[in-house]
């Protein structure tokens, strides 16, 4: 039988991982809310950011987190341009399908470019505090996991404040809920949507840097992430950020707990099981709106 201590440790680790999932999925569900777009390149951008963090750290010897100073504005800009010059050019009637293919193409291009520039070799950042763990009620918690969870929680908090408390957030929410109505009250929806995309991609920059602390990275790693992230946003209800966060915490925790009896590979299938169960029982997702079935 599994010891209580191991179970407790797994529970903590699961919640920490779930926090990171929540940040990574937030961007994905944000794009969906804005444009009914499934942004398949999201995970590829996450890996790109992780590579930038690794590269920055190995060239300068500084802490990889400092790379965020450059990568967050960069990703914000890319997101804005991506929306402005690629996605908004698609015909509204075929938007959903074509955007999937378009972002899939972008994901492949990013993966290929990472391979061309940095080869397919696996990379890992060597941090002075990398192997350190903190003892908490008998559980050994690696410091890097705490840092990435903290970063995720902080970013989600900021995202929440932006959405709820700023003029831009209000405009963005109005655009999400009813684009035409938002236009009528004088909101430049194209610009707001572009900024929303930038915001989503900025979360990918932060998430990628957080990921680089604790994971070995390689160009095709994004496939490993996009599946679970998509499952999370469907389970949470497409377009719902709180839904995605709850689903992420729950599935992340279950995943880590399942690793004890099943090993990591089989545990990973929990995301797909959850995805299929959601579609069978409640296609609109468990926390979000009624969008999922139609899109």
């Amino acid at each position: 039988m599994v010891s209580g201590a191991l179970l407790f440790q797994s529970l903590i680790l699961g919640l920490l991982l779930g926090g990171l999932y929540a940040l990574l999925a937030a961007g994905l569900t944000l794009y969906f809310g804005i444009m009914r777009v499934v942004m398949l390149a999201h995970a590829a951008f996450i890996i790109l950011s992780a590579y930038l963090a690794w590269w920055f750290s190995s060239v300068t010897g500084l802490d990889p987190m400092i790379s965020l100073v450059g990568s967050v504005p960069l990703f914000y800009g890319i997101g804005y341009l991506l929306h402005r010059y690629l996605l908004s050019r698609l015909r509204p009637t075929t938007m959903t399908m074509m955007s999937v293919l378009l972002t899939f193409g972008i994901a492949l291009a990013i993966e290929g470019l990472l391979g061309l520039v940095w080869t397919g070799t696996q990379r890992r950042i060597n941090l002075p505090y990398g192997p350190t763990s903190i003892s908490f009620l008998g559980a050994q918690i690696p410091v890097v996991q705490i840092i990435s969870f903290g970063l995720a929680a902080l970013s989600l908090g900021v995202l929440y404040l932006i959405m709820k408390r700023t003029q831009f957030g209000r405009s963005l929410r109005a655009t999400i809920q009813h684009g035409q109505a938002a236009q009528l009250v004088g909101i430049d929806t194209t610009k707001v949507a572009g900024m929303g995309f930038g915001l989503g991609l900025a979360t990918a920059a932060i998430g990628g840097a957080a990921l680089s602390l604790q994971a070995t990275i390689y160009p095709s790693l994004h496939w490993h992430w996009i599946g679970p992230l998509m499952a999370i946003i469907v389970v949470g209800g497409l377009g719902s950020i709180p839904g995605a966060a709850i689903a992420a915490l729950a599935l992340g925790t279950i995943r880590v707990l399942l690793e004890i009896p099943m090993g990591p590979t089989w545990a990973q299938t929990i995301f797909y099981v959850a995805l299929f169960l959601t579609l069978m029982l409640r296609p609109q997702g468990f926390f979000g709106g009624r969008l999922a079935q139609r899109f």
Binding site: F32, R36, V37, V38, L40, T96, M97, S99, V100, W223, I226, G227, M230, A231, V234, L238, T265, W266, Q268, T269, F271, Y272, L275, F276, L279, M280, P283, A292, Q293, R294, F295
Partner: peptide, 22 residues
């Protein structure tokens, strides 16, 4: 899978491949 449309359907089909790969 066909209970959902559009983008959700695409997600599901990708998920099928990823789960079978695992």
């Amino acid at each position: 899978a066909l209970r959902v449309r559009g983008a959700s359907f695409v997600i599901v089909t990708i998920a099928i491949v990823l789960v079978l790969l695992l």
